[in-house]
Structures are given as C-alpha cells and as structure tokens.
Simulated scan of single mutants.
Amino acid sequence: MNFISQYILILLVTSILGGLFNHFKFPPVVGNLLAGILLGPAMLTLIKPNSFLELLAQLGVICLMFLAGLESNLSLLKKYLKLSLTIAGLGVILPILMLGIASLLFGIHLLEAIFIGIVFAATSVAISVAVLQDAGQLHSRLGSAILGAAVVDDVLAVLVLSIFSAVSHIDGNKNGLTDNWGINFLIEISYFGLVWLIYDIVPKLMNLVTRLSLPHSEVVFAFILTLVMSRIAEKVGLSEVVGAFFSGLAIGQTKNAKNIIKTIDTAGYTFFIPVFFVNIGLSVTFIGFIKEGWFILIMTILAVFSKYVAGQWAGKLFDFTKMESRSIGAGMVSRGEVALIVAQIGFMNHMLTQEIYSDLIIIVIMTTIISPIMLNHFLHKIV
C-alpha cells in the first residue's frame, strides 16, 4: 500500500472511530489511538510505521501544542506556576522511585532500573490537550495547571536525563548540543530567554506581516515561527512540543490570534493531528505480551499511579476541588511521544535490552490510552 493510500485509510478510519467514540461520550482521541492499533502491526498489519507518517505525526503534535499555546490563558499559567512546579516535581520523583524500585525487584540491574524510571518521568500533554479542548476546559484554571505542569515536567525530565547521561556515560549528543550536562542545562535555560524575547517582539513582527499584500500572511508567519521554535527546542535537548507551545503563547497575544486559531485548528485536526495519534498506536505489538505480562501489568499500574497521585496531591494542596485534583492527576498520566523518545535514547545507547524496550513501548501506549479515559471521566463530574 503506497503512502497516499495509507493516508486515505487513516483519515477514513480515524473519522469513523473518532465519531463513534464521541457519540458514546468518550474522547475521540481514544478512537484515533485504537485506529493505529487496528491498522498497525498489532492487528491487521495494513500500515507499518514509516518516515512519511512520522513526518505527518510530527506536524500533528506541533499543531496540537501550538493551538494549546494559542488558546491558553497566560495570566492563569502565571498564577498557577507554583502548582505547576509542585506537580512536575512530584511527577518526576515518584515515577523514578516507584518504577525504578519495581524494576530492581524484577531482577533488572541498577542503571537500567533507574533509566526505566526516567522514561516514565516525563508527561505527554498532547493527549490531555485534546481531551481538555473537547470538554471546554483548556482555558480554565484546571487546564492551565495541567499545561503548566507538563511544560515544567518536560524540562525537569530532560535535566534528569542529562545528568544521568553524564554519570552513566550515555552519549550526550543524543540529548543535547554537547556531552556536558551542565553546559546543556545552561543552553536549555537560555532557550527560555529566547522565548521571552520572542514574546516581546512577535506583536511588532505580526503588525509588519499583516501589511504585506499576501494571502494568509499572518498564518504563514505564525506557522514558520512555530516550526523554528520547535526545531530550536529539539536541538538544545528539549521536546519540540515546548517550542510549539511557547510559540502559541506569543502569537496568542496578537490581534490576529482568532483567525490563526480557526485556520490552524481546521487544517491540524483535518490532516495532521489524527496521524499523530494513529502513529502512536502503530507502535503497539503484542509480541512477548503474554511472556512479560506481569511485568507489563505491574509497571503500567505504577506508571499510572505515580503520576496520578502526584497531580492529585498537588491539586489538594492548592485548594482545588476533589474532582479537579483527580483531573489534574489523570491529565499527567499519559507519556506518549516524550517517553518513546527517551526509551529510544536508552535502547540506542545500550541502556535497555530489546525485550525491556519492547515492553516499555507497550506500557507507554497503555498509559496513553488510559489517561484520556480517566481525564474524560473526572471532567464530566466537575460541576
């Protein structure tokens, strides 16, 4: 099956399953994830992961996080910065401890056990963003808390990985610009100086762009800025979603934001974002699932529990309601592409065996499917 045929099939199946799940009050994103499992190596084997779909998926997650930044309330993000730091801090420490200790009990050696904990330290907020948007909660204090925590969480997880890379002699070039974690950390921090600069000059640049007699010039400028910020973030060792999110925040303060949201939302959710979720599902295989069943089951429970508890505790500490606190915890559960990238770094640098790496992929996918279901359940109980 050629690339175009694969793309047609993905758009068709995601539309059907997404609509079906939405009809029964489930997040459409779950239908998209299951579409990937259905079409991929796990079941029908009609589509296999390939570079074409990876490119579309990359554009999809960039669009998704750019929209999240565009639609975010910056004042709420600032207001709940302490909460975000608390959630992220607990959300990095608990998975490393819980999954690291559990790995040791399964007979895995120390360095590999620690690395497994690090794999599950980072949160993939893209899944939660889709659910929050569907529930109309992206602009709320709850949505701001989850978004802020996920961004901080990503930075902390990258820092922990950088330190571990230096100590355990993993090739630092896989994770940053140099093999010195201290320098990498300074470079990553300096990236946020660039973010501050961009935030200050974007309105002026947008005014210049809108004067050009070119069709959709403001949308083109916004998307170019997003791609550039994403690429730089990736180069300095951060996730590309961080760059896309902050680009969205910067564009969101301009008078052109509503028009840009409408255009990117239509194009993103029609052509790119569904492929991102499908591509995650394509990573699933059930090879060795029965043999490693107990390991996968227990580690999945711990992966969910560690993030959920961290978010719930922090929510209660900052006077969120019981259901809001549970929603924060559920929103932090998904690992998605961030954990997949970290796991791949470990596998390529011989920190993880092929068997453990395959098991971790399944666990990541399980958290990615469980998270939106949990979050959707708690959001519907918020009055």
Rank of each mutant, 00 (worst) to 15 (best):
M1D: 02
M1S: 13
M1G: 13
F3S: 14
I4S: 12
Y7Q: 07
T14Q: 08
T14P: 05
F24T: 11
F26Q: 15
G40E: 01
I47R: 10
P49E: 04
S51D: 14
F52R: 08
L55D: 10
A57Y: 04
G60L: 00
C63K: 00
L67P: 06
N73T: 12
L77D: 12
L83F: 14
L85I: 15
M98I: 08
F106P: 02
A122S: 03
T123H: 03
S124D: 15
A130R: 13
Q133D: 06
S140D: 06
S140K: 03
R141V: 04
L142C: 06
A150C: 06
D153W: 07
D154M: 03
V158E: 08
V158A: 15
V160C: 11
S168M: 13
S168N: 09
D171N: 15
N175F: 10
N180G: 07
N184Y: 05
L186A: 14
S190H: 01
K204N: 13
T210N: 14
L212S: 10
V220L: 08
I232V: 15
G237E: 11
G243F: 13
G248V: 07
I260V: 09
I264G: 04
D265I: 00
A267Y: 14
T270H: 04
V275W: 03
I280Y: 08
V304Q: 09
V304R: 09
K307D: 12
A314F: 10
G315R: 12
S325A: 14
S325I: 13
R326Q: 15
S327C: 13
G329R: 09
G331H: 08
G331F: 08
A339D: 11
Q344K: 15
M348H: 14
N349H: 11
L352S: 02
T353I: 06
V364P: 08
M366R: 01
